[in-house]
């Protein structure tokens, strides 16, 4: 416990030393944009680059199998989504987006679950279930290499503003905002790590920390827990809004799924 306290103060000394309290200024977004990949040790990068050994492919293989397997109602994803009709290559780069039918902001997980309830007559998968992670990873993988480009106009504008607000608001016992690390101090050392720019381009990603594949929302929950703030639920509006803000902030970077992160 003593060691834990020492560490907690070490975190604060390093991270809070030269931060500015003003959250009203325009976002000092990172330039040039660099994927989280650039902040990894070479052997972690090598694991992401290896299309056999990258453990994320275990989920992608499963996702591919689920995609082409008929559900109980009789239809498989692959029956509607072919190369000729409703192809999914590149589609993930434009999420989150507003769902035309409901007017809600949805991410890839949400789109997959809407397909299940609207077109396949199936129940939605639970967030972070192996099935939803596998399908999400597979669909994102179909867009690997596609630059991210999202729409923040119209109904999405309020979501974008909400996401930016979440990103820039100090929270938790450490009283830290996302922007203080990932806009103001990226590239600097925080204990053994180099602070990244905080892009979600590799997600769902295999984190060595998790020893598993996980969603962007799981990562955001860890960020909130890291500053000792209460994590929001998976699929919550706050995190959907942050996901849209992050996607716009990372615009131009390519989808890397399955990323490997520390």
């Amino acid at each position: 416990m003593k060691a834990g306290l020492a560490l907690l103060s070490a975190f604060c000394l390093t991270a809070c030393g030269d931060v500015v309290a003003d959250t009203k200024s325009p976002p000092a977004q990172p330039q040039p944009l660099q994927s989280g990949y650039e902040f990894l040790q070479p052997q972690t990068q090598a694991l992401q680059d290896d299309d056999f050994a990258n453990p994320g492919f275990l989920w992608i293989d499963r996702g591919e199998a689920l995609f082409s397997t008929a559900t109980a109602s009789g239809s498989a994803c692959s029956e509607c989504h072919t190369d000729a009709s409703l192809p999914l290559a590149g589609a993930a780069a434009h999420y989150p987006k507003i769902d035309a039918e409901s007017g809600d902001l949805i991410n890839l997980e949400g789109r997959i679950n809407l397909c299940r309830t609207r077109h396949q007559n199936e129940a939605a998968f639970e967030y972070e279930s192996d099935e939803l992670l596998s399908l999400t990873a597979y669909v994102a993988y179909l867009s690997r290499g596609t630059p991210i480009s999202v729409d923040i106009e119209g109904a999405a504008a309020d979501w974008y503003a909400r996401g930016r607000d979440y990103f820039e608001t100090r929270r938790g016992q450490f009283n830290l905002s996302c922007t203080q690390c990932h806009d103001d101090n990226w590239g600097k050392k925080l204990r053994g790590d180099t602070i990244s720019q905080g892009h979600g381009t590799g997600f769902p990603a295999y984190r060595l920390e998790w020893q598993s594949l996980g969603s962007l929302h799981r990562r955001l929950r860890d960020c909130d827990a890291g500053v000792r703030a209460e994590p929001r639920p998976y699929g919550s509006d706050d995190y959907l809004a942050v996901e849209l803000y992050l996607a716009k902030r990372a615009e131009g970077l390519e989808i890397e799924t399955p990323g490997v992160r520390r």
Partner: peptide, 9 residues
């Protein structure tokens, strides 16, 4: 083995 920045992973 280096120590990670954030304790809760």
């Amino acid at each position: 083995v280096t120590l990670a920045a954030c304790l809760i992973g």
